[in-house]
Nucleic acid binder design. Sequence first.
DNA 1: GCGGATCAC
DNA 2: TATGGTGATCCGC
Length: 804
Amino acid sequence: MESTSADGGGFLSRMALNDNKAGMEGLDRERINKIIIESSKGSRFYENEAKKELQVNQRIEKMTLQRAQITEQQLQKAHTQVEKMVNELDMSRDLSRLIVHVDMDAFYAAVEMRDCPELKDKPMAVGSMSMLSTSNYHARKFGVRAAMPGFIAKKLCPNLVIVPCNFDKYRAVSNEIRKIFAAYDPNFMPMSLDEAYLDFTDHLEQRISWPESLRTHFPQESEPCVENLSPLLFEDSPSSTPSLPPSGEKVESGGGSEVFGTCVEEAVREMRFRIEQKTTLTASAGIAPNTMIAKVCSDKNKPNGQYRVPSNREAVMDFIQTLPVRKVSGIGKVSEKMLSSLGITTCAHLGQQMALLSLMFSETAWHHFMRISLGLGSTHMERTFREMSVAEEQLSLCRELCEDLAADMKKEGLRGKTITLKLKNVKFEVKSRACTLPCAVATTDEIFAAAKDLLKTEIENVSPQQLQLRLMGVRISTFVSADDKKPQQKSIVGFLQQGSSGPSHGIVPNSVKETASHLPMERPPPAGSHILEQLPQKVPNGNPSITREEPVRVAPPEASASTSGAAAPDPETLTCPVCFGEVRTTDLQVFNRHIDLCLSGVATETPTDTDSESDGDGGPKGFTVIDEGVPEKGEDKERQKRSNPEDALSAFKTCDALRGPSVTRAEDTGDPGAKERRSGDKPLLDHHGSRRVHSPQRASSSHRGDPATQSSRLEAPPGHEGSTLICPVCQVPQNTHDLTVFNHHVDLCLNQEVLHMLAPPSSSSSSTMRPPVTAKRGRGPPASPPAKKAKGRGSQNTIDKFFM
DNA sequence: GCGGATCAC
DNA sequence: TATGGTGATCCGC
């Protein structure tokens, strides 16, 4: 019978132009499809596509027959059943998270255009005559898009310039943007080199009390001498820079700096602004209460735009009504076609036909459809870890981390004497083991030699059992400038925004550098990511909350000279970011030593391991982490965030934030083909038409699904049940057992601490960025002060967080 | 458990 | 000339 939509006359609908992509509206589809089909006809590829199309059509016919046999009674029964589930799902709707999906605009093409301005006004694509990975917006007007073979694209657009892929370059840019992502959500979930999901909820909680100085960002002195910023792709894009806010919250302050507000839209706009300043590439973003909606939103105002669906049921349902099912991640061309044969093209239709769908598709498939029809999606992105217990693997990972670290050291021209290995076992216990070498080292082999010994000792300590790890980090500290010059006088430059701190400044970072890796997670590990982080005085570049994308550095006076200064305190003293005391010296080594001492004191008294807390860090720490996760079966692609009680407090996570970039990076594999991917949505239909996606029950069972627990970010650590909670920031015992209250206190402390960190301890520094407060010694806001106390002695310890 | 189908990047 | 490569999930066998 109705052989469904279009297969008439041998036309292969599956080969038709897929214009479900930004920049492809209003094209002459007829002409484009004609060229595509003519270019393909007779090829093996075409034949195979024809075969697949036929199979799909047969499935549809079968489904149609099946549908005809469904009785009214069955439908009724299904209806009540569905209704019940819908209500339950609706009740469990979680609107408490602010999920952001960020997607770089025409990423590979944009990078190539940036690096080769002549391409700017030409239609171009990245890939080969066989296959294109992406195209710029100019080329899209001709129907040229990703996943199209270059030779066909050439027929559509004879002037098309095809540039070969350069993954190393894309990866480098990706690392830049990921550092920025980490500043807003250290647990962000990368989906590919140019795309990620972030949970902005925690960031916003803190941001609300941030002073304007922390929300002020400056244009970066264009490092790649490209004349106009963000030139690239879109002469016709809505707004050329994210600095044009939809609503009037924006404030321009002199010098091109811009102050961003405290709401989500502003935070996201700020993030896009930073990305653009840093890379001269633009990004688009979607803001919503869950990943599914956020993803759709990010495409809405692409390129260089953002869109938000407010966190209330009505807004979500309104948004869903007219949304074509094909826009939803997980619904591809086959699912679209099958649903279409049932008269379903929008999410509203999906909701109306749930009873029918429940009878025709597998349980996983219709449950997925049901969630879509309700506008539900993942609200948390926690990663799941797979332990690594094979010694060889551990050593190999350790070496990779050392390689990354060595690369950073080389780049910065540093050598260090103290090597610290940080391990987190499957019980979430954290250990740090350090050794100080007689002389400073910098190469992979040297660092690894020390780290390996530390690791081997740990492995032997538990043998014959296996050491089961969730995370590993390697840190190096006690730096000595490689060129061995005596550390010249340096002052801390407070720093600023991203960028200004490029290596070009000849800055000597201070305290530590480290790399870490979460063990295998969702994506195969890469080589390890590393980020540099330095603790102490980093000034958040922008975002105190978590990570700053650039480490704070201690710069020589020359460098600092570039920023004219605002009030410069006493040039002879430096303010310790840990104890906030003035250290009377200008010698960085002396100063760093002081900081190390302060930091080392924060370790908790836990025996030896699990120092988990303390604010962390002790020290300079902050391992950056790479996590990779392996999604559990049936779990949504989306990782959930912090559902894990681990924790010793999620407060730590925040702590980390203070510290630095902990970036979680997923690795990218070099992808020979196109973009890097991460396992993602699930597919849905299969032969008989079904596929799945997240299983609702799993979602709801994961503890965050429980509305009752949603608001509490902190769970009592095992063993702390009835004991007094001690703030990991100020170290003062809190007279409460209410975790919400406790978390609130911690947040306040952290915010306060950030202020302190921001206060440029010494001389010059950037002007505007610095917060008004300079030194409130220690005391913080509400309850108690953030200052960490220096206590203990030695140097090791420290901890840090790891996320969650 | 395997192979095929689907999906995403 | 020429239509990617990879990982993940689901389903049926």
